[in-house]
Design a protein around this nucleic acid. Structure first.
Lengths: 251, 251
DNA sequence: CGTTACGTTGATAGGAATCAATGAGGGTGG
DNA sequence: CCACCCTCATTGATTCCTATCAACGTAACG
């Protein structure tokens, strides 16, 4: 309730700049990486982590709008997101764009190209992002365990996708609340605020992701703001009443 | 694949010893398995396949309604479907059942338990089904490559799921046509007829899977029958005009 | 032969898409 | 620095599709 009256100073677009500076200043080995528990190394021993470090190409920086890989391009390896945010889209035969999801730090990008050696989706940066390329060929020799780790990530991804799937049958409001809570949770897991974060996507993109119209997304977000559950300022959202939001999501 | 249409009499509940004996007589090694190209061995060499064979527990028969594993049960390994059909469902906090999908021969079941060591879904047989259990602990030593293979399966599964996801935004008719064409394609890939197959699921289950109401499913299927695109006979469907069906799906 | 679960069909209501118009923000060039 | 354009967001009015409600038919089964 105190949140309601607290002054909300919005510093736009500062996040990515901060990241960039931080990233430049610290050496980003896997061993010292802050995302250690979320990224691949989870489950590997010290020796393996050291080997992994060698097989990863660091310092790949993407600016907003930059493409990590394009649909139908040849699969060359997976990527671990170190900072920023990326979106994954799929373009069908009719040229229609479909937003599949968002990737945040600690998540693995590229599974869409693994089975057929050709990427099924396009991934691009929603803000300045830092990704680590995983050279699978090199790693496989050094760490046989790596595929088990990756399979865990894939498995986890499958579970998440299916959980989100079952949300689609609910109302527009529930889908939007679920989207907000999902972002909130994922931010929180990565050490950022669960109550104040970036939506990254435009209203149209959110609509696309949730299978709604942009107008409905706009109206629903506004309604949530009117009932003091959230506060909006462009793409930035502040959660004012997490309890009520969670309840609405569950009932 | 006679197993699919075998006239075995179904007796509910537990697996009978009789069936185990029958299976002993038709013991199928991975090497000689007709699903060879669809199942795990794809990409493994002869020596590896032999080793794989040892690490797989055969003889698991499920009859209609039997459960392969339950939600929240401990993950013990993956399963490869040898014959039959299974459905995977998820039950949420409110006890609502959500149909996640269908598994057909050659597909791998169990990824939902891999990341957290606890199954996130319940899998049960839609008809008499034969599954091979994959003992991961044993295999890992013999075949380091196995996780790469499994990751390919998982990756493939992710692609399929996302493709299906993007269908959800379309009309009821398109969703149902997509469902029919998906089953048709998968049947065809497994050597069965692309034009005459079993829906396996009840109208309610189809509705649930496609996020529709049972009434809408019924009506839409009837409309497709009225326009002579398909022919229905209980759960069995015949595709009369594949071209028109495919066109309707694409436009 | 009744019971039960499932499937079909019709009537109605409601929620989201669509259509339409305006408003806000961001970049560009004069 | 401001006018202009362009994209995105918002808001309202209307339409349309699907869910829901309701009733009846049908098949399986004890």
């Amino acid at each position: 309730m105190t949140l309601l009256n607290s002054p909300w100073i919005c510093r736009k677009n500062t996040m990515s700049v901060v990241y960039k500076n931080i990233l430049d200043s610290i050496r980003v080995s896997c061993e010292s990486c802050g995302l250690n528990s979320l990224c691949i190394p989870r489950g590997l021993n010290e020796n393996e982590i050291e080997k992994l470090d060698i097989s990863i190409t660091h310092k790949t920086i993407l600016r907003q709008g930059d493409t990590l890989y394009k649909q139908n391009s040849i699969f060359t390896g997976l990527y671990a997101v170190k900072s920023g945010a990326l979106k994954i889209i799929n373009i069908n035969e009719l040229g229609e764009e479909s937003v599949v999801g968002i990737f945040l730090p600690g998540e693995i990008v590229g599974f869409d190209g693994f089975s057929s050696d050709k990427h099924q989706c396009t991934v691009s940066a929603l803000e300045t992002s830092h990704v680590c390329k995983i050279q699978l060929d090199e790693i496989q020799e050094a760490i046989p365990n790596i595929y088990k780790q990756l399979l865990k990530h894939a498995s986890n991804f499958i579970n998440d996708t299916q959980a989100k799937n079952s949300l689609i049958k609910t109302s527009a409001e529930k889908r939007i609340i679920a989207f907000l809570l999902d972002l909130s949770k994922r931010h929180n897991e990565r050490g950022y605020s669960a109550f104040d974060f970036n939506l990254y996507l435009s209203r149209s993109n959110i609509a696309n992701l949730l299978h709604l119209s942009p107008e409905t997304v706009s109206r629903t977000l506004r309604n949530l703001e009117r009932t003091h559950l959230i506060k909006l300022e462009s793409k930035r959202v502040k959660i004012l009443n997490m309890t009520a939001l969670t309840e609405k999501n569950e009932v």
